[in-house]
Write a protein that binds this DNA or RNA. Structure first.
Lengths: 207, 207, 207, 207
DNA sequence: GATGAATGAGGTTTCATTCAT
DNA sequence: AATGAATGAAACCTCATTCAT
């Protein structure tokens, strides 16, 4: 990062901001957005409540920053994984492995989405959703491109629209991670991307 | 239903209960559980607040009843679809079609689940509380059984563990429905189960 | 009572009224006025709520009737006790014994006053208080009269104003009953009026 | 108090706390616990409702603090009065005078206790919750000790168990205060402890 | 006459946000 | 700049009472 080049004061502020976000992530992921009070975040982060409001306009703002910045990092990681090779199959392998790895390394964030509360849909206001969804679809297009190129290259059969293939692959990756998260002892962490990709690579039907 | 046989008073009560649940479903799915006040539900359903509490002990109770009863109906539909045929491939086709149909017919409820998790690309199962998750997994085992029998019957190749195959298939169905939900004009409703099943049936890789 | 002379319908109503009052007394004395809902009284008495309101205008009314009628009976008992003899000392003995006996026989009612709630002063609206206080003071005047006559008769020394003597005696009776109520094993029920009256009859100071 | 030594902020908080307690005492004693809403206390004390909840976890907590702290002060006063002399008779005189004085100085609090129990002629101890009752009985044991020592010293005749003597004396004091409270014009404030103690000291019966 | 479903005012409590220090 | 005490809107829920059946 370019943090080093910032004046000491600015760097200090950034560090504080990160501290707040980190505490907020922990709390939100443990108890759900609506069950965490700003005053808890402040206490845990050892700041005054007023200070939080210097960094973030309001609670939702804090939440959005938290999610968006985490997603930024996530995307960077995935982009980097994709960039490591030109081979389409290898790209998919790298993607699956990187996504798994990142989820494993960022459990609190993952849980923030899975466990916002005990039921479903204890969600925050829309708006964040829209932005994230946009970004998700944009990213899916990058994966779709891989399938598209693979089809052109005759590496892949065109068993479905590239975009749908991308989304489907991603869903299956999510599913495999979820299984592991929910019951790690029964469903091993999919170290090997083949476990997921096999479903796509091999046809289910006997000839 | 056997509602007809109930005394008039009982039928009336059931109707009112349904009315409340229906209004609650709409509101929760539009704004999220925490952003809906009981007095809103009451007003929209044209009951006094106290009346809501005659039917449901508290807000959470109302929510749980809403979700569990909707899930009951959902499961019944799916079970019925599976029961229509003995053929494994046909069972999968019926399942995919029935699930799609049900989601199309119960959009508010579907949105209730998506609202929370969509943004992060985690699918429907996310955010379910323990009971729902249990039920989900139990149901997945029924699907897994189909794959297992298909494998024994030599209809299917064993490209993955049956249980994982079940979860993966379900995820891909969800994904396809999500695409349609989000942008019906770009992603047509997957009338034909083949659109989804093709991914599983045919191998992606060229020989 | 003259109940026998009333038409059957009226007698039935009176019986129902008593049933309600009896249930209310039990509940109020167990949980305190404010912690008992009309619907509880109705349920326990096996009447519809609406029926309670046929007998009593509102909750406070029910409470007042309960207390006042119980007090009527209490007063009657005490009056009767006093009327049994002309001798002043004997009158006091009868009074103390009768009050003790009545309290022992009407524990729920006694507790209603002692345990209205866990703290103090969880009381109802004033108004009842005033009436009861009036009646209490009027009754004390009857006791005072006994002291007065005793003093005239030279049975008693005039160690204090008759009225104050009456109130003081009554307080000590209450105190002795309270001790017994609170810890019956440590403080025996004052079967013998002498236990209380001794304090008044004998001087504490050595000559 | 040592309040002076506290930082200004702390002193200020204590002052506010006292203000709230004082207002609550007034309202509770006038209308009864259940007939006072927190928002009334807040309004009268000129604080926002939320501020009350900074000082006291909930309504009951506020009430308990109110009663217990007032009782602490009461006990201290009485202890101090008892400590002023070694002579048993003088101790009783000091006790009666101090209790009277304190009640006269703390009318709202006294009324808080009387409100509930007065109507039925049960005295202050009634309706106390377990903690208060415990404290009351412990204190009575101190008074009992005075009687016990007096009996040993041959100052007193043993006209009853010391503990019962203590409770009886206390009851009569309460009664005399009650009379004054209810009708100050008819029943003068018992400035002179002899008015009460006379009942104990002299025997009622003529020889 | 009896019923009990329906009402909704009003209670307690929380917590996001502000602003004087 | 940082603080955190104070705010008060708004949430959930209860229950005395009414009135159509």
């Amino acid at each position: 990062m370019a943090d080093q080049k910032l004046p000491r004061r600015e760097r200090e502020k950034l560090r504080q901001r990160q501290e707040i976000l980190s505490v907020a992530l922990d709390l939100f992921s443990q108890k759900g957005y609506h069950n965490v009070a700003m005053h808890e975040v402040a206490a845990q982060a050892e700041f005054a409540i007023g200070t939080l409001y210097k960094f973030f306009q309001n609670k939702e703002d804090l939440y959005k920053a938290l999610v968006l910045e985490e997603c930024d990092r996530f995307e960077e990681i995935l982009q980097a994984a994709l960039a490591q090779t030109e081979d389409e199959v290898e790209k998919l392998r790298h993607y699956v492995r990187a996504k798994g790895q990142w989820c494993r390394d960022n459990l609190p964030f993952v849980r923030l989405f899975l466990a916002e509360s005990r039921g479903a849909s204890f969600n925050i206001k829309a708006g964040l959703d829209d932005e994230l969804r946009q970004r998700y679809y944009v990213f899916m297009e990058r994966i779709a491109l891989i399938f598209e190129r693979g089809i052109k290259n005759r590496r892949f059969k065109k068993i479905a629209e590239p975009y749908f293939l991308a989304v489907a692959l991603d869903s299956v990756v999510d599913a495999s991670l979820l299984l592991w998260l929910d019951a790690p002892e029964r469903h091993p962490y999919p170290e090997d991307p083949e476990a997921v990709l096999g479903i796509f690579f091999q046809g289910l039907l006997e000839a």
